[in-house]
Structure formats: C-alpha cells, structure tokens
Design a protein around this nucleic acid. Sequence first.
DNA 1: GCACAATTGGGTACTTCTACGGAGGTGCGT
DNA 2: ACGCACCTCCGTAGAAGTACCCAATTGTGC
Lengths: 210, 210
Amino acid sequence: MLPEAPVRLLIVDDHELVRDGIRARLESEQGLEIIGEAENGRQAVSLVEQLQPDLVMLDINMPEMNGLDAVEEIRDRDLPCNILMLSLYDNSEYVRRAIDLGTNGYLLKDVSQSEMAKAIKIAAKGGFYVSESLSHSLADEDGANDPYNLTDREREILAAIAAGKLNKQIAGELDISVRTVESHRSAIRQKTGGGNAAGLTRIAAELGLT
Amino acid sequence: MLPEAPVRLLIVDDHELVRDGIRARLESEQGLEIIGEAENGRQAVSLVEQLQPDLVMLDINMPEMNGLDAVEEIRDRDLPCNILMLSLYDNSEYVRRAIDLGTNGYLLKDVSQSEMAKAIKIAAKGGFYVSESLSHSLADEDGANDPYNLTDREREILAAIAAGKLNKQIAGELDISVRTVESHRSAIRQKTGGGNAAGLTRIAAELGLT
DNA sequence: GCACAATTGGGTACTTCTACGGAGGTGCGT
DNA sequence: ACGCACCTCCGTAGAAGTACCCAATTGTGC
C-alpha cells in the first residue's frame, strides 16, 4: 500500500479551547495535517473555498452562521469536501439534518481520542460515521425524532401552544375549529404526559419546536 | 522572590475533548501541574478530598452532579481549595450563584489561552476573576440578571409556573393564598408581557429559571 | 413620621383549558 | 373489503387562568 497523502483538515468551532483540544489530540495521529481553523460558519465556508481541505470538522452551535447552515452553503457552492459534524448535543433533529445534508458523520464532543481518529479516517474517505453513543437513538430511525410519537399535526399544534398562542388563535391560523385544537392538545398531553400549557411548552423546547 | 511550588490543578469537565484542550494549553505554562481529572461533580468532590488540589477548574453543565452543586458539596465538607468555574454559558444566574458560593472566578469556554492562564494565577492565589466578556453584564450588578425587574418572589413564582405547577400547588408550597399567587402572576405578566402560561414559560427559560 | 415598594389577600366576571364522553371522513396498507 | 391511524368536530362539566377593581401589612429609605 502506498503511503497516502496526508488528510488536509479544517477545524471549525467557536471555542478556541475546543480547537486546541482537537489539535492536541490530532498531533499524535499520523497522516493528518491541520491546515486551518475557523470560528463560525461564515468563515468556514470561505476557508473551504480558499483552502480546499479534504475534510472539515464542523461544530453546529456557533454564532454568525451555524454548522448546518454552513453545510448547506458549502453544498450550494459545489465545494467538494467531506464534512464531519461535531456537536455537544445528541439532539436527534441535528443528527437527522446532518444526515439529510449528506455529511460524512456526526460526532459528540465526548468522543474518545481513538473514536475521533477512527471517525476522521472514515469521513475523510467519504464514508459515514456516527458516535457510538448516538447510533442507538437512530436505530429507531424513521419518525423517532421525538420519543412521544406525535403526529405532524400534533407537533404543529404543540409548537403553536409553546409560542403562547391560544387555542382560538391556533384554530384560526390552521382554519380548523377550536374543538379540534382541543382534541389535538388533549392527545398531545396524553402522549407526552405534559400536563398544562407550561409543561407542554417545556416539552416543545425539548423537541426543538421553539 | 522564591520560586513557588507549582499550582496543583484538578480539571473537571464531562468532555474528554475539553479536558485535552485545557491540558494542551496548560502544558506550555510554567508553575502548573495537572494532578487529576474528573468528569462529573461527584468524582470531582471525591478527588478534591483525595488529592487536595490547590485549584479546581470546574465545568458547570455535567451529568451526575453539576459543577455548582459540587461546589456546595466541597464547601459543606470544608475541603480547602480554590475553585475556578468554567462554562459554555454566560447565563448570569450561573455567574451569580458562582459568586454567591464563594468561588474564585468564572471563565467562559471561549477564553483565550492567555486569559485562561491569567485567571488561573489569580484564582490559585485566592483572588477572583471573571471573563472579560462577562464583566460587562455584571456591571449592572445587583438585580439586573433579568431585564424585567422582577422581584425575588416573582422570579420564584415564575420558576414554579414554568415547572408546570398550578397556582394552587404553588400557593401550597409557598404557604400563601392562591389569590396572592395570582397577584404575583399578574404582576409578572405585566412586567414581562408574557401573556399566558406558555409565554411565561418561554420567558422563564430565557432567564434560566428552568 | 412619611413615601414607597413588596408582599399579602380579596371580589367579580369572563375566558380558557382540561377531562370525560361521543362521531364521521379520509387515506393507506393488507 | 377491512382495519387502522389520522384528522376533523361536538357536548358537558368543572377546574384553572385572566382582567379588572380593591386594601392591609411589612420593611426600607428619606
């Protein structure tokens, strides 16, 4: 087997501390070269354009432009590179979007050094890797971004409730009767065990419906 | 001036990646020795007891036992050490609690290497340091952690509302009448423009009262 | 002492939510 | 054709929250 050219890597995270941590870990790895850093999505996109890295390690929660939006931008501009998402949160909505956007993996920030190295190797070759701690939650696949099995309509109404709207308002906006909204609300309560409006709002926040 | 004994440091963060980052940074600093790591509050407390570090760098958001609770535990057990809080969030409620608990500083994770080194030196001597990016929000000092001028009682009740409790329950727990809770609730609505329970819950989340 | 804010409590009337019960229609897969 | 999940709608009753009004008590600061 030939010695391959080193993987040219771009690190994107809004915290210098985390970037330092990644650097420290990867220094001991062979075949990797960190060619740049960015601290938000906007910088990331322009550095991808300039430096044409083989792989981008991209944080999700960042100011200016978040990681997922940055991926969209990179794909829109047809910039060829593999992307490994990196996030604090095992929010399955994030994971889902990351998959839908055709990234090459999703790592939680609590990964071990060896897992990170493995993920980088796989992602750099165009493969796909998710944190072991996450793969279980994706086993459910399909509609399991909420553990409550809410229907689309129910999620829509839950979001409206969490926005502080009254049943009457919601009914008006969705052009259905107040009684129907109440029915859905009742179903949501039953499924989530949410209790009153305050409880439902907390759950909506959990599900990222805010 | 004598060469002082090195500062014996304990690092506590639930993410190995972040611990690696801190290690990487501090390696280049003089007079520091990392004597241990913990990944949650419970471990932290027992390691403080065992190792008796001079300074603990303590993350706030952790599973098992969070950083602030760990501080309480450490203080309760009269374990002598300086504590430097480390957090992703500039939640001023956190900062306030950290101050109230008598810690020696509060760093955001986006600090630069030099600022971190400075903070460690100050905190290790028993001084107090807060991230520059935070100090402005504390300039308002006193009661300005919310922009709504809520009183203590109002914040207390708002938190209970956000927890999904009914006025009746709240009244029971605080040993006041339901009417009084309603009065407070009404005052909160007026001050915050919060509208109904769902709206108030969102605002409570904003204020970190969850 | 006096003004002021905070906290406490009340009355009335209205709206909204909650918890039960019921039903009809649609679409989808077997 | 049938079951099934989903969305739609209704009645009734009671519980809870909302929008107004009001006042007594306490403590703080001037």
